[in-house]
Structures are given as structure tokens and as C-alpha cells.
Amino acid sequence: MNRLTPEQLAAGVQDLPSLPAVVMELLSSIEQEDIDISVLAKKVSYDQALTAKTLRLANSSSYGLQVKVTTIQQAITFLGFQTTRNLITAAAITGCFPSGQCAGFHDKSFWRHSIATAACARALARRMRFNQDIAFTAGLLHDIGRLVLVTGHPDAYDQVVAWHAEHGGDWQDAERAVLGIDHVDAGVALADHWNFSSTMRQVIAYHHTPDTHGAGFLAAIVHVANAIVHALDLAGEDDELVPRVSSVAWDAMGLNEEAYLHLFRETELQFGEMSTILMT
């Protein structure tokens, strides 16, 4: 068995690739409004790859801009600071983990699922009159712990994949059975290490258990978005599996069928466009 101790987990997190400093700054200040925008725009623009990806996102039809933005400063002017900040984060996070670490783990499917969940959480949040940008980032990051495990402990994760192939079921069960910890633990460790805001940390910790007291409304949004994306079969995994949907979280959305059908359509459309941009 390949049990991971909390110390090994922490060591694995330390060894992870680091995000550009400016992105770390953005993630830790996600609920802060009083940031010097011009300084930030300048810092981001030093990173050309990051800037290019961010601008492609900003110009995608999901954001419905009538003009094409060509600088970060322009994106901030037209989309607002919050939205631009989240696009920068999305562009940075999707490019920072090495792929192909573990043969049985499909990086592409992982990101397809994460991007679709981000799009769905954003669309749900709009209907809930909740902050759409925070919901988008939360959806993108909810399963980030899986990447922590795969990147930090690829050999051990190979065994998780083997266990999963044999027993089926949830990844969480496979991770617990082999490693003794799961991607929720690893995600929380990363959230601490990368200094995520407490809202993001809550979502990572409770997206499987949104009924927990104090889990927060955002955890419920991401929980439902995650289930919808599994049900819509967007990740492209043969053994796709819809987890049990919390009736408390479902109730909290309070949407009728017509609203859900629109939501499904919106999720699929935005996912298609965003995944092309983020996964190149």
C-alpha cells in the first residue's frame, strides 16, 4: 500500500510548480476590491503567454464584447476588474501543471471537466445573483487536489487508477482506499500553500459535502455544477459517473426544469469555446 502521511502530502505540495507571482497575488486577494489595477495590469503584461491567453478569453463570445480588447488594461476597462482577474487566473492555472505524469490519469479530461464546471458554475451563479467571477474560479479549482496528488505522487496515483479500474465508483473512494487521503485533503493543503482566499478553500473542502454546516452557498453551487457536468458527459471519459446530488444543494438552487435546460445549453456552448482557448 502507498499510504500518504500528512507530511508526505505537505512535501508534495511544496514541490509543486509555482504560479506566476502576480497570479498568486490575485488568488489570495480574490475578494479584495482595493487593488492597484494599473500596477497589476503592468505586471501581467510582462508575461506574454499569459496575456495572450487572457485576451483570447476576454474576446471569446462568452463575454459578448463588441470590440476586441488588445491589452490587459483594456480588458479591465470593458469587462471590469473582477472578471479580468478571473480570466488571468484561469489562463495561468490551466498552464501551470505538467501533463502526462501518470499514465492512467487523463489530464485532458481533467481540464475538460474543470473548465465545464467553471462555465456551469458561472451560469448558475448568474441565476442565483451570486458573484459569477468567483463562481467561475471556484468551479475551475474545485478538483485541483487531484492534480496535487498526480503531480506530487505519480507512482502512488498509478495504484489509485488501478484500484479504480478494478472497483469502479468514485475517485474519492479509490484515493482513500490506496492513499488514505483524497483529493479534497490535497486540495485544501494546496489552498493553504498557495494562500487561496477562505471562500475558495471552503469550496474545495466541501464541494462533495455541501450539506455540512458552514460549507457556504458557493460550495452548493459548485456541487450542483459538478454533477451537471458529469451528467452532460462533457469530459469525454468512458467511465463517466454522476455522483449523488445533495438534495439540500439542489433545493437551494430553486430552479425549474426550463431554467435547467437553458443552463445545460449555456454550459455546453461556453465550454466548447473556452476549452479550445484554455487547452492550447
Binding site: 454533477a227 451537471i228 451528467a231 452532460l232 454522476v242 449523488r244 446530488v245 445533495s246 438534495s247 444543494a249 439542489w250 433545493d251 426544469e257 435547467y260 435546460l261 445545460f264 445549453r265
Partner: peptide, 16 residues
């Protein structure tokens, strides 16, 4: 019956 939310999601996705 305790798992009705998953059942509703399935019905909606099927309709979709």
C-alpha cells in the same frame, strides 16, 4: 427516495 435530486437531474438531462 432519499436520492431524489440525482433522479431529477437525470430526468432533466434526458429531456434535454
Amino acid at each position: 427516495l432519499g436520492d431524489w435530486a440525482t433522479g431529477i437531474l437525470r430526468r432533466y438531462v434526458e429531456d434535454y
